[in-house]
């Protein structure tokens, strides 16, 4: 069986397991929808009071918010297995993954596709669709939306992999990483232009969320004339993800089991 078909098999099993408890699933998803939906409600409330955010309008911010949240929800759902690395290591269960004739990355990606993230995904989609009424759409800008989301997913996935990698040294998964995953998501819900220069540089050169979502969004919103750089910028996402996979390999090599 090739890797992709095996992955699909893993995912099918994971989905069936989650749907076994339908009521719990429904409650959790609705809860997740509410928890993430209040973030946009907050943005709306601030616009209701202030009218504008340094020249940015509510629909513009909504589009950026939608892009980021859709990507974060998908990355969160896909990378769920990497969240579990800390507890897998503690229990010595990671060794079982090492003896199987498949890569650890494939096994962890297939560990669980967290369905409950549909909550954040759907509110991100609703916000994006609501915002899209204000802008003129071309084939180019629609393609750019897809490209931006894909690039941003790769950045968030890369962060999840790096967080898991750090667990090889610390065993306990560190809360510090939440600043970059959840914090990165929070920060990139707003246009990067409103932040201080050092902060923008960090999210451009180190964790390239500005390149994958904010920069293409400028072209989608018609703030910049579309040029080749808006298309190239989201490619920073896959590059970041590839670097995180290299770090992961170093981590696996460093791994010393807790088992006997």
């Amino acid at each position: 069986m090739n890797a992709f078909r095996l992955y699909l098999r893993y995912i099918a099993i994971s989905l069936r397991a989650q749907l076994a408890y339908r009521a719990t699933f429904a409650m959790k998803t609705i809860g997740h929808l509410l928890v993430t939906g209040i973030e946009f409600f907050g943005i709306w409330a601030l616009f209701a009071r202030f009218g504008t955010l340094r020249g940015w309008t509510l629909p513009e911010v909504a589009l950026i918010y939608g892009l980021t949240d859709i990507a974060f929800a998908l990355a969160d759902a896909l990378g769920r297995g990497f969240d579990k690395v800390g507890s897998l290591l503690k229990a010595g269960e990671f060794d079982r993954m090492l003896v199987r004739p498949r890569s650890t990355v494939l096994q962890l990606l297939g560990y669980e596709l967290q369905l409950m993230r549909v909550g954040r995904l759907s509110q991100g989609l609703v916000v994006l669709i609501w915002a899209s009424r204000w802008f003129a759409w071309t084939a180019g800008s629609i393609a750019l939306v897809v490209l931006a989301i894909a690039g941003t997913i790769a950045v968030f996935l890369g962060l999840v992999v790096l967080q898991a990698t750090s667990a090889f040294w610390t065993i306990e998964s560190l809360e510090v990483w939440n600043a970059f995953t959840y914090g990165g998501n929070y920060a990139s819900q707003y246009p990067m232009a409103i932040y201080r220069a050092w902060f923008r540089r960090f999210f451009t050169a180190i964790v390239p969320l500005a390149l994958t979502s904010y920069y293409p969004a400028r072209a989608i919103l018609g703030r910049d004339p579309l040029d080749i750089w808006h298309v190239v910028a989201p490619l920073a996402g896959p590059v970041f993800f590839a670097i995180s996979l290299l770090a992961w390999r170093v981590g696996v090599r460093h791994h010393a089991s807790t088992g006997s």
């Binding site: 202030f50 955010l53 340094r54 707003y190 409103i194 902060f199």
Partner: peptide, 19 residues
Amino acid sequence: TQIFFGLVRVMILAAFYGA
């Protein structure tokens, strides 16, 4: 993490106030 979130919130609110 809380300092990070605090900084982002301060920057966002300061931007709203600035406009």
